[in-house]
Structures are given as structure tokens and as C-alpha cells.
């Protein structure tokens, strides 16, 4: 009961931080479950993956019909993310906990660096008269009141990043959006909001390919996952509702520091 309550609160915190920062929250939940509560890494990753699926489904359900999610691009890139995730789920069983922890250490440092490098990033307003092509998109942006139209550039880069993101996702129990979103935005010409919405949309399918394998291995404990899922749902709902008032810039800097600490702790534990 107490443990369930702790996981529920951890899920709520991870979910609201995730919603505020545009991350899934898994990057906070996995180290808490693994280092804080002492669950094996694979059990922590499996719980985190189920929360990631729930977040993806509920966020995308709320966004569906607003043209923000680029469905065609998402479905195309899902071929790569699901493939990567399937592979990651299979290899996670063969890799030692220490190696997974070291990988997580590297990854959370990378998330922190990416987050810091994007503190000032703003949306690029593109010429609305271009032809979006087969994979591009067009949506109405509420803030500026403009219609944003974009084409997809460098598709092979997007596919490669998606495969890598899918692989990391099921291996380490995170969504992988922090890999896809910057790549789609910076290199493939996709506006930030569309990139984030499309990435969040893909993450459900990506994480499922991995989570199913953990479930088959008996590493996905339903009661633990249930508390975490409900906590994250509550947290991300709250984060989205009240997040507009928060100073995201300082939050990003603070969380980058937290991630560096997580990175060091994971690395230290992995070396032991």
C-alpha cells in the first residue's frame, strides 16, 4: 500500500514534469524506480513503458482532428520506430543491468544537453503558400493565428533517427521523443509543435512493441504499472492544464541539472 502510494506520487511528478517539458516523463520514472525503490532495471523500464503508452494515447486522442499530428509521416516513421523497439525489447533481455544503467547514464546526459541547447528555440513560421507534398502538413497555429505549411526534408535522416529512438525506447523504458523531436525540427523542416505532436503519436506504437516483450517475460508487474499509469495520467493532465503559467525556461535548466545528477548516479551504479 505504501509502496503503491509512493509509485503513484512518483508517476504524478514524472507525468507533470513530462507535460511541462514536452518529455514523456520516463527519463525521471526509470531512475526513481531502479535507483530509488530498487526494482530491477527491466522491471522499471517495463513500468515506465506502460506509462509512456498511456500518455501517448491520451495526448494524441485530445489532439486528433486538429491536424497537428502528421499522420502520414507518423505512420511511415513508425515502421522504423517499431522495428527498432522490437529489436531493443529482445536485446534488453540479453544485456546486464550494469550495462543498461551505463547506457541510461549516457542517455540522460544527452537529454540534458539537448534540453539546454533548445532553451531559446522558437517556432519558425514558414511560407503558407508552399505545396506540402505527400508527407508534409498544414495546420492552424492558435498563438499566431496563422496557417503553418511545411514540407518534409531529408527523410532518410528522419527514418534513421526514428529507428534509433525506437531502439533506445524499449531498451531503456523511455518514449524517445527527445531524439526524434529535435531531429525532425532541426533537420527535416517540421515545425516544433507538429514534430512534438507527431512524435508523441508514434510513441504509443513504439513503446507497445517493447512493453509486450517485457510482459511476456513477466517483468511487467500489473499492479505496479497500474499505479504508475494512473499517477502519470493525473500528472500530465495537471501539467498540461496549469503548465502555461510556469516558467518553462528555468524549469528546463533545473531539470537539466537533475538529469546530469541522474546520469552520474546511474553511471556510478552501473560501474559497481
Amino acid at each position: 500500500m505504501t509502496q503503491a502510494l509512493i509509485i503513484f506520487v512518483a508517476g504524478t511528478v514524472a507525468g507533470s514534469l513530462g507535460a511541462l517539458l514536452g518529455l514523456g516523463g520516463g527519463v525521471f520514472l526509470v531512475p526513481f524506480l531502479n535507483l530509488g525503490l530498487g526494482f530491477p532495471f527491466t522491471v522499471a523500464a517495463a513500468i515506465s513503458l506502460t506509462t509512456v503508452i498511456a500518455t501517448s494515447s491520451s495526448v494524441s486522442a485530445a489532439r486528433a482532428g486538429k491536424h497537428l499530428i502528421n499522420m502520414r509521416l507518423g505512420m511511415l516513421l513508425e515502421v522504423a520506430t517499431a522495428g527498432g523497439s522490437l529489436l531493443g525489447g529482445l536485446t534488453a533481455q540479453l544485456i546486464s543491468q550494469g550495462t543498461l544503467q551505463k547506457l541510461f547514464g549516457v542517455l540522460s546526459a544527452a537529454v540534458a544537453i539537448i534540453m539546454l541547447s533548445r532553451v531559446r528555440r522558437r517556432n519558425v513560421i514558414l511560407d503558407p503558400n508552399i505545396d506540402p507534398g505527400v508527407l508534409g502538413g498544414r495546420y492552424h497555429e492558435d498563438e499566431s493565428g496563422c496557417v503553418v505549411t511545411y514540407r518534409v526534408k531529408r527523410l532518410p535522416v528522419a527514418i534513421a533517427a526514428s529507428f534509433f529512438a525506437g531502439n533506445v525506447s524499449s531498451l531503456l523504458g523511455i518514449g524517445g521523443g527527445f531524439i526524434k523531436v529535435p531531429v525532425l525540427n532541426a533537420w527535416c523542416g517540421i515545425p516544433l509543435r507538429a514534430a512534438a505532436a507527431t512524435s508523441a503519436f508514434m510513441i504509443g506504437v513504439t513503446a507497445t512493441a517493447g512493453a509486450v516483450i517485457y510482459y511476456g517475460h513477466g517483468q511487467l508487474v500489473p499492479a505496479l504499472a497500474a499505479t504508475a499509469v494512473l499517477g502519470v495520467q493525473l500528472g500530465s493532465w495537471g501539467g498540461m492544464r496549469f503548465g502555461a503559467a510556469a516558467s518553462v525556461k528555468w524549469l528546463k535548466i533545473l531539470m537539466a541539472v537533475v538529469l546530469f545528477i541522474i546520469s552520474a548516479m546511474m553511471f556510478a551504479r552501473g560501474l559497481r
Binding site: 505512420m75 513508425e78 522490437l86 525489447g89 533481455q93 506504437v205 511476456g216 517475460h217
Partner: peptide, 24 residues
């Protein structure tokens, strides 16, 4: 074209289910 792509995604998901059942 997109029927094929989404079918591949479905096959990948089913492959993970098959893998899970084998492990189970």
C-alpha cells in the same frame, strides 16, 4: 502505399506479441 506501410507496422507489433508468447 500507406496500406503497405501500416501493414508492416502491424506485422512488427504482432512479431513482438509472438516473441512475448514464446518467452512466456
Amino acid at each position: 502505399r500507406f496500406t503497405t506501410l501500416t501493414l508492416i507496422v502491424l506485422v512488427e507489433l504482432l512479431a513482438s506479441v509472438v516473441a512475448a508468447l514464446i518467452f512466456e
